[in-house]
Write a protein that binds this DNA or RNA. Structure first.
Length: 202
DNA sequence: CGTGTTTGACCCGCGC
DNA sequence: GCGCGGGTCAAACACG
C-alpha cells in the first residue's frame, strides 16, 4: 500500500476531529487546523484522503488521482468550527484514460457506487459522523487481524453502508469505508447550519 | 416492549 | 465445479 494516510488525532470522547459522512463532510477546524474552506482546499489534505479501496489487491487510490471537483456548500459562521463540502463521485473513465491496469469490474462497480475510505488516528472504536447507523455484521477478515464491522444507515430507504476496522498494521488507526450515498441530511449538518457555535464535549 | 447488537449460517463472486 | 473469502441475513439476545 503506497498511499499516505491522513493523520488526525482524536483523544477526546464525543465529536471526532474529522468525520466523513458520505459526500457531506464536516471538518472540525478547531482540531484539524483549517480556519476556512480555502485553507482546507490549499492544504495537501486531499492527497491523504483515500478512495477506491480494493480488497483483492489491498490498494487504495487517492482523490488526487481522480481529480475530484470540490465546492463549498456553506461557509462557517462566526464562532463556528465546522466547514462542510462536497466531493464529486470518482470517475472511472478518468482512471482508464490514465491507462491504469488491473481495474476489475468489481472496482468499476465500487466506483459507480462511490466508495470513500480514510484512516484516522483515534482511540475511538466508532467515529460519530452525524448519521445514525445500525450494525448488521462483524467479520474476521484475512487481511486484518482485527475485526471488521458492517453498518447500514438507520434511515429507511437509505442505501449507504460503511465498514469500520482497525488497521491491521497499526492498530492506533481506524479505517472507515463508506459505500454509496445518503439520500437525506444528517442531524449534525442541520445543527451546523443553524447554530452559531459548537460545543465540543471534553 | 422497542431498539440495537451479536453471531452462526448462508449467499455469492472470484480464482483455480 | 469447487473452495475460499468477504458480505449479508436473521433469530436470539441484551438493554434501557
Amino acid at each position: 500500500m503506497n498511499s499516505t494516510f491522513l493523520e488526525t488525532n482524536i483523544t477526546q470522547t464525543g465529536n471526532p476531529s474529522f468525520t466523513f459522512p458520505n459526500l457531506y463532510s464536516h471538518i472540525m477546524t478547531q482540531d484539524c487546523g483549517f480556519n476556512n474552506f480555502q485553507d482546507f482546499e490549499s492544504s495537501n489534505f486531499l492527497d491523504h484522503l483515500l478512495v477506491d479501496y480494493s480488497p483483492t489487491n489491498n490498494r487504495f487510490s487517492t482523490l488526487s488521482e481522480i481529480t475530484p471537483i470540490m465546492q463549498e456548500t456553506n461557509s462557517t459562521n462566526s464562532g463556528s468550527c465546522a466547514t462542510s463540502f462536497y466531493v464529486t463521485p470518482p470517475n472511472i473513465n478518468h482512471l482508464k484514460e490514465k491507462n491504469q491496469v488491473g481495474i476489475t469490474n468489481k472496482e468499476v462497480k465500487m466506483n459507480k457506487r462511490h466508495v470513500i475510505a480514510f484512516r484516522t488516528k483515534t482511540q475511538l472504536e466508532i467515529l460519530d459522523d452525524g448519521y445514525k447507523w445500525r450494525k448488521y455484521g462483524k467479520k474476521k477478515v484475512k487481511s486484518n487481524t482485527n475485526l471488521r464491522n458492517y453498518y447500514k444507515c438507520s434511515i429507511g430507504g437509505c442505501k449507504i453502508k460503511k465498514k469500520v476496522e482497525r488497521d491491521g498494521h497499526d492498530s492506533r488507526y481506524l479505517i472507515t469505508t463508506y459505500e454509496g450515498r445518503h439520500n437525506h441530511e444528517s442531524n449534525s449538518s442541520i445543527i451546523y447550519n443553524h447554530e452559531m457555535t459548537i460545543e465540543f464535549p471534553q
